[in-house]
């Protein structure tokens, strides 16, 4: 037996093991994207007649409505990510540092439970709670806080609530991981050397948890940016989410060329924001991905 034969066999085995994942990646992600990219770079000049052009992208830059929705989606997503981080941090801290054993596991389960039902059902649940004839408005009337039931749906705040709720778990998991690995003696040592709570948070906890924070923010931002259901159902027609524009182009207007261009613009946006986020926080992508 030659020395290269087991090596050759090992390569074949590796190739076979990786085949399903590679095929999935190639057939369902790479190929459709290539096709969409080609579609986005053509223009219909007459029925069944197309020419290569940048017209679809030009439309985006010349039409203020698309621009505004694009920026609005990015800003609201960033706000949702920030709020998710602020809410998830104390939760993750409690799970990682304060609760012990079964209690920590139970708290984790509580964060997980909403994901046992589908996103559609969850979002419809929010609608039942918040709509004018819903549970919360009539409760407010009963308490005498308002005279008529207010419409709580179709506000930006409502969209934010829904987005944060959907994203919480994806922030909590990487945060718990990175906080659990923080040695309590470091916190005590910082206190012992004269630091107060906020200083400990700023100088010890956040630098230690930075890869986890970055990982959580990236995941939540991308999920939020690409979310269709929550902004659409909770925000109604006024939600003005960029994914709705893509949906409209493809489904309502049958303008696949425009929809494909919008899709690539959204991809470029999320990639840019992740890159900016990594640069701003001084994190390396590989470190961050290990934490998420």
């Amino acid at each position: 037996m030659t020395a290269s034969e087991p090596n050759w066999q090992r390569r074949l085995l590796l190739a076979l093991l990786l085949a399903p994942a590679l095929l999935w990646l190639l057939l369902l992600i790479v190929l459709p994207h290539v096709d969409l990219a080609l579609v986005s770079f053509r223009e219909r000049v007459a029925p069944r007649e197309y020419v290569t052009s940048l017209a679809q992208y030009q439309t985006f830059f010349t039409e203020p409505l698309y621009w505004q929705i694009f920026v609005r989606t990015a800003v609201v997503s960033a706000i949702a990510t920030a709020i998710t981080l602020l809410i998830a941090f104390p939760v993750a801290w409690t799970i990682a540092k304060i609760a012990k054993g079964r209690r920590a596991a139970l708290l984790f389960l509580v964060c997980l439970i909403p994901f046992w039902v589908s996103e559609t059902v969850r979002t419809l649940g929010w609608m039942i709670l918040l709509r004018e004839s819903g549970v919360l408005p009539s409760f407010l009337v009963k308490l005498g806080l308002v005279s008529a039931p207010p419409e709580l749906l179709y506000h930006d705040a409502t969209i934010l609530v829904g987005l944060v709720y959907t994203s919480l778990l994806f922030m909590v998991v990487p945060l718990v991981n990175s906080l659990e690995s923080l040695d309590n003696a470091l916190i005590e040592a910082a206190y012992d050397l004269g630091a107060g709570g906020l200083t400990v948070l700023r100088t010890i906890v956040i630098p230690h948890a930075a890869p986890g924070i970055t990982a959580g923010c990236i995941v939540v931002f991308m999920l939020t940016l690409g979310n269709y259901l929550t902004p659409n159902l909770l925000g109604g027609t006024s939600s003005q989410w960029f994914t709705e524009q893509i949906y409209n182009q493809f489904i309502t207007r049958f303008n696949w060329e425009q929809g494909a261009a919008f899709g690539f613009l959204l991809l470029a946006l999320s990639t840019t924001m992740v890159w900016v986020g990594l640069k701003a926080s001084g994190q390396r992508f590989a470190d961050v991905m290990q934490r998420s």
Partner: peptide, 17 residues
């Protein structure tokens, strides 16, 4: 953090960051 006392910890607890 208000005591005129400082401690050397068992595992030293130097700040790795």
């Amino acid at each position: 953090n208000q005591r005129p006392v400082n401690m050397v910890f068992q595992q030293l607890a130097l700040f790795p960051m």
